[in-house]
């Protein structure tokens, strides 16, 4: 009963905060959500890999970067819109991811756990530098009209295109949730994630499941790679910052908690944009990301110890 009352209190409080924010600084909420959508959509596939295969994929952002380059040149060659490239890029990236998994990561899973870190670090360097060698450090950006779509409400004019990332993040999170709880493969994957030895005993092919989950995550990364072309220019190091950000979000949500990544992203996105909206605090917006992560992790560990 106490817990329920507290939850109700928190919900009421956040609702009040949202209403206040809408009335006072609507752009904070708009841009905060848009930023959160992008953060979450990139982080969710990494969260899936971390939650089930238990590897910190330091090449996560680089996989997205490679997918973006593939999508860009595919689109340019065929005169195609990047939105049409989402599904093909997802498939190609999934296959690429599956091959990479079989060639490298699978072998590292049998080695001491830390080896996966260094292996994926090596992959990240190899990807970034190969792309740099082929396409140079110059940036490429697809000129698209619809990304400047905008909306007027009173005096307020803002871009609407980036809301697409919010939608994608929600689809990713709940799609994966459905997959993991409703389908046989998904349930097997969840079982492997929770207890690989137990899963092996009941006859689940653990390495096959790992490979599938990795490929599935890479399909999402590939889809994001194509969609990313609408938002950003691409260049060899464009993916690396996303690896760290995603890792932070996952830790904040708690490993294995995929819908939690949505909440963590919204909190960080809105908080960052809130600080950016005021002159004295705007240079400190970036710090809030890291401070919040530490606070949440420490608070959770304290709570965990008490109970």
């Amino acid at each position: 009963m106490v817990v329920k009352r507290r939850t109700a209190f928190i919900v009421a409080l956040s609702a009040a905060a949202v209403v206040a924010l809408i009335l006072w600084k609507p752009t904070v909420l708009i841009y905060g959500l848009q930023a959160a959508g992008l953060y979450a959509a990139v982080a969710i596939p990494m969260g899936l890999v971390l939650g089930i295969v238990h590897i910190v994929n330091l090449a996560h952002g680089e996989f997205m970067m490679v997918a973006s380059y593939a999508a860009y040149f595919g689109c340019r060659a065929l005169g195609m819109d990047p939105l049409l490239a989402i599904v093909p890029t997802a498939i190609v990236t999934a296959v690429f991811g599956w091959i990479m998994f079989q060639l490298t990561i699978r072998r590292a899973l049998k080695a001491p756990e830390l080896n996966q870190l260094i292996l994926t670090f090596g992959l990240a360097i190899a990807f970034t530098q190969s792309i740099n060698l082929i396409f140079t450090s110059q940036t490429y950006k697809m000129p698209l009209d619809y990304v400047s779509a905008s909306m007027d409400i009173g005096d307020l004019t803002f871009g609407t295109w980036s809301f697409v990332f919010v939608a994608v993040a929600i689809i990713f999170a709940y799609g994966l949730q459905l997959f993991l709880t409703k389908t046989t493969t998904g349930k097997a994957a969840l079982a492997v994630g929770q207890n690989p030895r137990g899963a092996a005993i009941v006859g689940i092919d653990v390495y096959r499941t790992y490979g599938l989950v990795f490929a599935l995550a890479l399909a999402l990364v590939g889809a994001m790679g194509a969609l990313f072309l609408t938002k950003s220019a691409i260049f060899p190091s464009v993916g690396s910052p996303f690896t760290m950000k995603s890792f932070c979000l996952i830790a904040m949500a708690g490993i294995g908690n995929i819908p939690g990544i949505l909440g963590a992203s919204v909190l960080l996105g809105v908080a960052e944009n809130f600080l950016r909206a005021f002159r004295p605090t705007r240079d400190w917006a970036e710090i809030v990301f890291f401070v919040l992560i530490i606070v949440v992790i420490l608070a959770r560990s304290l709570k965990g110890r008490k109970s």
Binding site: T139, K141, P143, L144, S148, G159, A233, F235, V238
Partner: peptide
């Protein structure tokens, strides 16, 4: 890398 996204956002 900022050139076009800045313009797109300005337009929006």
């Amino acid at each position: 890398a900022d050139a076009l996204p800045l313009l797109e956002q300005s337009k929006a």
